[in-house]
Amino acid sequence: MLTETDVIVIGGGIAGAGVAAELAGERRVVLLEAEERPGMHTTGRSVSVHSETYGSPCVRLLSRGSRDHFLEGVDGRSFASDRGCLYLATEAQIERLDAFGGQPTVAPSIERIGEAEIRSLNPLFRPGVVVAALYERHAYSLDVDAIHAAYLKRYRRAGGVLECSAGVAKLEYSGGQWMAEAGSRNFRAPVVVNAAGAWGDVVAGMAGVQPIGLQPMRRTVALVDAPTGVDPSRWPLAIDIDEQFYFKPDAGKIILSPADETPMDPCDAWTEDVDVAIAVDRVQQVIDLPVHRVAHSWAGLRTFAPDRTPVAGFDRQAPGFFWLVGQGGYGIQTAPALSRFAAAMVCEQGMPSDLAEFGLQAADLASERFACRE
């Protein structure tokens, strides 16, 4: 069976769902998801926080352009809740903390605080260990499941077609059209959006398109009990300035991570016990947190482009092939802005005006910025 459409989107995670929802009102769209349901890999394992200071300068612009979407939510329900974010420094890390805080896209959003205020935000910090921090007051916890589900609901309401258990087995370009073989069906469209996450270069290779050099990296997360009698619900997210660990409250427990970045091939990632142990040890060095058991642990892949900034735009050497990959650890917090940008580019409508006012440029996201593709 052959389905004719305007745009084929490959990948039903937050990137694919977001751009599909934005496109569905303008184009006929088919969204192809390899798994039995969307969001089973990176999107479904995210503990995302919206921070306008996290990531590369371009990522920060996209995060800024996404804030209103999260705060407004849908049907009167916000996707965001107040959290705050602390970047932590020991005495030996002060210079790096101040260098980070002095960056033009960071400085307006943070304030430098000392040990007393750090301990007022979280009294479990060990005295004399973390001596300074940068505090981003307006950082938010995000309801990832609700954000993803809202995009899929909006997509279906606009008439979009979602095909699950439809991994792409073949992708060819002929006569101005892309033909995708997925599941037991064939789909044809002049535009294909590669939102395949860790499999982005695999999809490109299947299509005969030069890969970008995407690198999936495993990130480990563990969930532990809060100390008896301690309510961590108002703690801010805490990140080591050298990103050697982070921790945050979650439904009465505490999420912690060693902020590992283990290079992997695209796969369904699983935790390693040693990474969980490293996470516990690093966090225990800065806060008084007895850990008697790990309630749960999981891992996901964060897939980076070579410069750790997302890739979004048509490939100059492959007509109708649109990249939407390399979101790394910022895919959720940048999804609204990146989805709007990508949909505008696919429809040849130009940069959304608010993103242009923030200073975003299409060249910042284009695949041609990499030397291997010149």
Rank of each mutant, 00 (worst) to 15 (best):
V129C: 07
V47S: 10
E117Q: 14
R188L: 02
W323V: 05
V202T: 15
Q177Y: 08
T42Y: 02
F322V: 09
M1I: 02
V130M: 10
R293Q: 14
Y54L: 14
G183V: 12
A80R: 12
K253A: 15
T42L: 06
G328Q: 09
G329Q: 10
E136H: 05
W298I: 10
I113P: 10
F370C: 00
V129K: 10
A150L: 05
P227V: 02
A133K: 07
P211K: 04
C347A: 15
S141R: 15
R67A: 06
S46Q: 05
D250S: 13
D145K: 15
A149T: 09
V106Y: 01
M351S: 05
S51N: 02
P38T: 04
A366P: 00
P249V: 04
Q361L: 13
G11C: 09
G176H: 09
R157T: 12
V311Q: 09
N122T: 00
Q317W: 08
K153C: 01
L32S: 07
D273L: 11
E243R: 10
Y246S: 02
E35A: 15
T43M: 08
S120Y: 00
H138N: 13
G16K: 05
A133F: 06
E348A: 15
P319Y: 10
A238S: 15
Q317C: 12
D275M: 14
Y173N: 03
I287L: 02
G11I: 09
E163V: 11
I118Q: 12
G76H: 08
G350P: 11
E261Y: 01
W323T: 04
G300P: 00
